[in-house]
Write a protein that binds this DNA or RNA. Structure first.
Lengths: 209, 209
DNA sequence: TGTACATCAGTGAACGCGCGTTCACTGATGTAC
DNA sequence: TGTACATCAGTGAACGCGCGTTCACTGATGTAC
């Protein structure tokens, strides 16, 4: 009956939410099946009626995180038509930085989690990311009007990677000490420099590889 | 006696080398105390006469990896006086990419490994990284002649982070599909754009944070 | 050179812990008539 | 509405595995005389 499936999905949602909260609080490595079961008020074995395994839970949490990131980026660039592409890109970068800082553990989980190489990403989990690149793609089109589409797409990825790298280095505190407050400044410098390069250089054509 | 300490250090070196080989082959998560003991031909307990724990082993392997990276960068930029700062930076970036690709697991281990937050980095492990930034710092000084020193240092880190991010996204295959061959092209594009920005823009002064 | 003793590298079984997943069973819920 | 039956969510003890680290003990090696 439908009643049953509805409840099933509600339960699964509770499970995923509980996992999200757990990761947000303690980090991915502290996620335990027993904790989740207790949290949603069922026996240990029951969670395997809701999901195949913990990997699925983690992937679903990742989906939620990407959703929220997407939302944050959309909100930040709302009415972006008033912004220059440079400003637009700076806003994206700093919004990303803030999102990462405010969702540190969830954001890390996105990159820490690696599923056993034999089993592939389930299809419902694919394409969560792709959507994010459209945020970069739009302003980039203005800055690279004469570039080929593939080229723009490739560079979206590059730019995203670059911003991500700066944010990661900044937030992990892994490399020497980075004054956390300066990250936004550095991001904005980096993005603006690239934009200057795009405008005044050779339009970012990728010759001489 | 000295004989004893010598042997101790030889043994420890063997241990670390074995760990290096193990990580290189299988990745950090496959590193096992029992494997290491077997590999260097001692009993399990003996390795705790050589090191405090596995964390120490991993940190020492990380040190070796950073040493080799440093070496690779030095070799690649030897006689760099003939290169423009732009070319110099591009060489650094692509050398980094190649090193990461050729030492995938060891390179990953550098970032995956996180020691329990209560115990701090032992002092012999500090400052392994700092050294690397001098490679970036030199050409950057030419491109940012009028910037303050702190500013240049901060931007070294930013640039390194950006390059690292692009490489990481490229090599992890985490985000959609990146044609591996294009990474160097993208790196060179990114670096050259930044350089164009530095030369023609406002010298990378970091106003309007 | 030889002997008694101290040190400490080396041994490997056992400790201690953690934890994802399974499975035989139960009981509530829905279905058929 | 009531009864017999089927389904399957839910249970939680047990399985199975992995693994870092410790520790009481041994024996080789160096030291003192």
């Amino acid at each position: 009956m439908n009643r049953v499936r509805e409840r099933r999905e509600e339960q699964r949602d509770k499970l995923v939410r509980a996992a999200e909260a757990a990761i947000a609080r303690q980090g991915l490595s502290s996620l335990k099946a027993r904790d989740l079961a207790r949290e949603i008020g069922v026996a240990l074995g029951a969670i395997y009626n809701l999901v195949a395994d913990l990997d699925e839970v983690i992937l679903r949490v990742g989906g939620l995180t990407l959703d929220r990131l997407d939302l944050a980026l959309s909100a930040a660039t709302e009415g972006a038509s008033a912004l220059s592409p440079e400003q637009h890109l700076v806003v994206i970068a700093t919004t990303y930085r803030r999102f990462a800082a405010e969702n540190l553990h969830l954001w890390r989980a996105l990159f820490e989690h690696r599923l056993p190489e034999d089993k592939p990403l389930p299809e419902w989990a694919v394409g969560n990311q792709t959507r994010l690149f459209r945020h970069i793609h739009a302003p980039l089109s203005v800055l690279m009007p004469e570039a080929k589409e593939v080229d723009r797409t490739a560079f979206s990825l590059t730019l995203f990677g670059a911003v991500h790298g700066v944010v990661a280095f900044g937030l992990e505190g892994r490399v020497v000490g980075v004054p956390a407050d300066d990250i936004d400044g550095e991001l904005s410098r980096l993005v603006r420099l690239v934009c200057v390069g795009l405008r005044r250089g050779r339009s970012g054509m990728n010759d001489q590889p």
